[in-house]
Computed example of a mutant assay.
Amino acid sequence: MKIMLVEDEEMLSAIVAKGLRKVGYAVDTVFDGEEALVYYEMNEYDMIVLDLNIPKIDGLDVLRAIRKKDTDTKILILSARAKIDERILGLDEGANDYLIKPFDFGELEARIRNLLRRNFSVTPATIMLSSFMIDTNAKKVICNNEALNLTRKEYNIFEYLILNKNKIVSAEQLVEHIWDSEFDPFSNTLRYHIHTLKKKLSDFSDKEVIKTIRGQGYIIEDAQ
């Protein structure tokens, strides 16, 4: 999943971005409201974590600008504006959640997980696919009581395809949601990760779990 982190305090931004990347998210960091709107127009994000006290364009105005054209992208306000009326205003303007600074990273991560689940028809923390159990909290895949040794990117690809089960997901969609904006679209990175993921899944299943639809993308279908 891909997140834009809008935070002008560079040290805090680096700490939060590092933590989110460590648990498997692709993160773009921006430091002012003007840059946030440029990045929003250029990329597709699953979530925006938005500070309000940012230079050039206030965070609330960034929120309003995005909500004029987009009611789907999840937005979590992360701000020191802690008064009740300020929090109510942020939520009324279209934020999906509001977390006050200072905050615990574990709580931030839990709120992000909860909001991202709402993007899909599947909402439980644990998803079953045939003999595979996907734990979206722990970011693990288990089959027959054995955890698959997946890299973060392999897990993220598998999770995203399962959350879009029975739909063809294009390579472009996977790149948009799993890699940050520094990804080289001309590299073979995605194909390599798909290949290694398929190989690992084949060790636990005789059936083809991820199907490649030539010229269109990839799909995971309901187990027959």
Results as ranks from 00 to 15, higher is better:
Asn156Arg: 12
Phe158Met: 02
Phe158His: 09
Glu182Asp: 11
Glu146Asn: 01
Ile162Met: 04
Glu172Pro: 00
Glu146Ile: 06
Val169His: 00
Ile157Arg: 06
Glu159Gln: 14
Lys153Gln: 15
Ser181Asp: 13
Thr151Arg: 11
Ser170His: 02
Thr136Val: 10
Ser187Trp: 13
Asn144Gly: 01
Asp184Trp: 14
Asp184Cys: 13
Asp184Ser: 13
Asn145Gln: 06
Leu161Lys: 07
Glu176Gln: 08
Asp184Val: 12
His177Tyr: 13
Ala171Gln: 14
Ile168Leu: 13
Asn188Trp: 07
Glu159Asn: 13
Glu154Asn: 02
Asn188Gly: 11
Asn144Met: 01
Ile168Gly: 11
Tyr160Pro: 02
Leu190Ser: 10
Phe158Pro: 03
Ile157Gly: 12
Ser187Lys: 14
Leu150Arg: 09
Trp179Thr: 02
Lys165His: 03
Ala138Lys: 15
Leu174Cys: 02
Asn156Cys: 03
Ala171Leu: 03
Ala147Leu: 07
Glu154Pro: 01
Lys165Leu: 08
Gln173Ala: 01
Glu176Met: 08
Ser181Ile: 03
Thr136Asn: 06
Pro185Thr: 15
Lys139Cys: 04
Tyr155Arg: 12
Lys153Asp: 08
Tyr160Val: 01
Val141Ile: 15
Asn137Ile: 15
Asn156Lys: 08
Leu148His: 02
Tyr155Asn: 10
Ile168Cys: 14
Glu154Thr: 04
Phe158Ser: 02
Leu190Thr: 10
Glu146Ala: 06
Lys139Val: 11
Val141Cys: 06
Lys139Glu: 10
Asn166Glu: 02
Phe183Lys: 14
Tyr155Glu: 12
Ala171Pro: 04
Leu148Pro: 09
Lys165Asn: 01
Ala147Ser: 12
Glu159Ser: 09
Ser170Asp: 04
Thr189Ile: 12
Tyr160Glu: 00
Thr151Asn: 12
